[in-house]
């Protein structure tokens, strides 16, 4: 299965890993890390808004958070998805 990641383990950052999913399987988001327990649902919404904006319907995303603001979470999600789409797998 093809996967791609973006981000770092530095503070205020996160690592987002995107993996291809079977057609029709939908979007799955897993969040772990510093803020997951308190802000998990807001973080999930931030990630999903990028997925939807990019018109992606089937993908699995895993977020390892280290205190990232929503805008960083979204930037890393977009980068991981672009890499997955473009075959630029990091």
């Amino acid at each position: 299965m093809k996967t791609a990641s973006a981000g770092t383990v530095e503070s205020m950052d996160c690592i987002v890993t995107a993996s291809e999913a079977d057609p029709g399987s939908g979007v799955t988001v897993q969040i772990a890390g510093a803020s997951a327990a308190r802000f998990g649902s807001a973080m999930r919404a931030a990630v999903l808004s990028v997925v939807s904006k990019m018109g992606i319907t089937d993908v699995t995303l895993s977020v390892q958070d280290n205190g990232a603001l929503d805008l960083v979470l979204q930037a890393r999600t977009e980068a991981a998805l672009e890499r997955l789409k473009g075959g630029d797998v990091a």
Binding site: L71, Q74, A75, A79
Partner: peptide, 17 residues
């Protein structure tokens, strides 16, 4: 070099903020 794409997206979004 391997992070140019991700940095560009991040800088863009930080600017938008």
């Amino acid at each position: 070099p391997s992070e140019k794409d991700a940095a560009r997206i991040l800088v863009r979004d930080v600017l938008c903020r």
